[in-house]
Nucleic acid binder design. Structure first.
Lengths: 176, 176
DNA sequence: AGATGCATGTAAATAGTTACATGATTCA
DNA sequence: TGAATCATGTAACTATTTACATGCATCT
């Protein structure tokens, strides 16, 4: 069987540089967390599977029993096949957005509080992204990290404005 | 154990009206699909669990062995508890966005094609949402479906603009 | 020496997908 | 009567989360 999304993302990270499971885990807990999170208990077994299929291989062993992996030629091929698939497959898990459908069940002020909390959450995320953007090579084209980051920033801004719009809309009415 | 997201969303749908598993399945394959999809093979067992916990109950039996469910008082309580949780928990699964990080591995024209496909995808979704919006009671406040829909529309517009921005950025450069 | 961070694993449970399986009703 | 749609379920597999478990290295 061909790897799933997690496997392909691991191949992608390893295509940039050799890394240990620990380093990969950190990537899934920071940068990639915003699009596809994963924990070490999923990553280590997945690395073993990828190695078993010859898509990655062990390279140097480090200090504390650490083990570095590199992507193989077959792994790179598999990764490119995956990237080339342009059919946009989406099954988002947007819990906070799903709740909005049913917020009418809450008293007016608690529903408003929910929207305000969402706004604050997205403002905080935007601030983090802007911090990243300041550190990344300035918008220089062909910088795909920067392009992905831009998507994140535009998403957060859209959600901040949406929350403000919704609070406005509800705030204008007298509470029930 | 308390229900998960799926269980709560089922409670939410049933809080609006009694429904059969089939009708609920359709909701998760249309409206809710954009935020939290689910298939019938997950929904029927979950309904059984919710009933076992006394959060929903069977009401009238219909024509083809169909079975209608209604939310109980306890179910409504559980739902409100869930809705009131304002901590924004997010673990999005944005596969198409995750791929962007590694698009540099593809030849220039295929990477561009990927971005154009994304743009087209989001334009199509926006068109669908605008169709919904035309059918929904006009922006009348306290209409939470409309507020959720607005989030979707703003999201799609942001992604359309992002894709155009990225295509521009890359198009300006000579292909490698 | 104790805390923190590096580093890797397994076990158990829940969640989610895909495939298999069945039968009733309605409409052309 | 054949196709489409309504309607529900189970089985097998894959993915994900949470908890348990261990040990080394560095820094104070």
């Amino acid at each position: 069987m061909t790897p799933g999304v997690l496997g392909h993302l691991l191949l992608g990270l390893l295509s940039r540089s050799e890394q240990t499971g620990y380093e990969l885990t950190r990537a899934f807990d920071t940068t990639l967390k915003n699009v596809w999170g994963a924990s070490h208990s999923q990553i280590y077994p997945e690395l073993a599977k990828l190695e078993g299929r010859g898509l990655i291989r062990k390279t140097t062993a480090g200090p504390r029993g650490s083990q570095r992996y590199a992507v193989t030629a077959e792994g790179l091929g598999e990764l490119e096949r995956w990237l080339a698939g342009t059919q946009p497959i989406e099954s988002p898990r947007l819990e906070w957005m799903a709740r909005v459908f049913f917020l009418g069940l809450l008293p007016h002020d608690r529903a408003l509080a929910y929207l305000r909390a969402q706004g604050a959450f997205h403002r905080a995320k935007l601030a983090v992204y802007e911090g990243y953007a300041a550190g990344v090579p300035p918008a220089g084209a062909r910088s795909w990290d920067r392009i992905a980051l831009e998507a994140g920033m535009r998403f957060e801004r859209a959600m901040i404005e949406w929350a403000a719009w919704a609070v406005d809309l509800l705030g204008e009415e007298p509470p029930s």
